[in-house]
Design a protein around this nucleic acid. Structure first.
Lengths: 211, 211
DNA sequence: GATAATACATACCGTACGGTCGGTATATGT
DNA sequence: ACATATACCGACCGTACGGTATGTATTATC
């Protein structure tokens, strides 16, 4: 009779398991309300493993924000909204894509780094900055298409591509706040519809699909 | 020589002092990261007083959301954006007003109930609902002007006054998230400029002041 | 002036928190 | 074969947490 196998996860996986658990648990309960023990339990990992991989709870916060950045970068790079040949179509497809991935429970589609930044911006500059890099880094990936669309359509006004890119993120973050406050995902979709309409107005696109 | 006056606050003021302290401290540190002792210290009140007025920390959370609703209702009712005779002008003046009151530190202009809702939406439905009532109640105060402007200008499209009113709040909340993440109030102003431009586009107002 | 309710104050309780520490099992390089 | 580093375990520590129990000063009511 061999040693009881005790259902232990693979050696070497503790760090990633902790980051995934942190992403999920913090997204629904917040950073401060999530204890290190909570995370260890969710990741099926001991406290020794936690503090072997992360120097403190705050360090885990920074690491999970960076983990979010990495996984999201891949996810959005692979998304189909890059397919259209026309830059403006790509920008509108991005907004449509953001709207389309609002599915399932609120904790499944809302933004980890937006939540964490809002919560710890004053008490933990390190986490806040990691969250900021995530949000503004993602915004920056939209700038080229917006700028190209702007040139293509000869549009000008009191705004820049950089500013509009950031604004899309503000609307998305605000949409999540309202969805949480009203406990209704439709509230988020509603704001993304307004954002799409705004961009179409900026580029003088007819409202044929507004019905 | 009379009894040493020991610098004690007025009797009967503990409840309001706690609510004001909670508003300020929670706004910068978050709900979960703020302890009952923190609040008592900030309000110069003992723990006995705290639990005399509030049955639990969560009950304080609900009460401070309602306190926020009450004080903000008065503040916005007295604000000058109601002055213009034209409904659309009032709507645009509202957005301009929200932009103008972005002053001082981030904790001074951001929204308590948006922050709390985002943080506790899953773990404390009571607080979440109190925050939701605050946000959506405030949004509702904009509906009449939006609807009147809509009729005046004969504008129609795939949106309702109710939906646009909520969207203004989403943009404002998202603007706060970005301001926190980037530690820069200008990020919030930027999104309010986009919101103003969106509304002007919806009502076909010329962009004379965009320059 | 007695009674009762309100508004605090203070000491205390059990627990859960972030973090530490000594140890062991496994892989890796020589 | 041995040394070394990495990955993990689990008991433990001091403290800070939310909440309670009991007592007292002030106010309102009759």
């Amino acid at each position: 009779m061999s040693r009881p196998t005790k259902h232990s996860p693979e050696r070497g996986s503790a760090r990633i398991r902790l980051l995934e658990a942190a992403r999920d648990v913090i997204r629904s309960n917040g950073f401060a309300a999530t204890s290190v023990d909570d995370l260890c339990r969710a990741a099926d990992v001991t406290k020794g493993a936690f503090f072997h991989h992360f120097g403190s709870k705050e360090a885990l916060g920074v690491a999970v924000a960076e983990f979010w950045t990495e996984t999201n970068t891949g996810f959005f790079e692979a998304a189909p909204y890059h397919d259209p040949a026309d830059p403006l179509a790509r920008v509108l497809a991005y907004v449509a894509f953001r709207r389309a991935i609002i599915t399932g429970g609120i904790a499944e589609f809302t933004c980890l780094v937006g939540t964490m930044a809002q919560e710890v911006y004053a008490s933990s500059p390190d986490i806040r900055d990691a969250c900021g890099r995530s949000i503004f880094g993602h915004a920056a990936t939209l700038e080229a298409d917006i700028e190209a669309a702007r040139r293509d359509h000869g549009v000008s006004g009191g705004w820049t591509a950089e500013s509009l890119a950031r604004h899309t993120q503000a609307v998305i973050q605000g949409a999540f706040v309202l969805a949480k406050a009203g406990n209704d995902a439709d509230l988020a979709r509603e704001s993304l519809d307004h954002l799409s309409r705004y961009i179409r107005h900026l580029f003088h696109v007819t409202e044929e699909d507004d019905a």
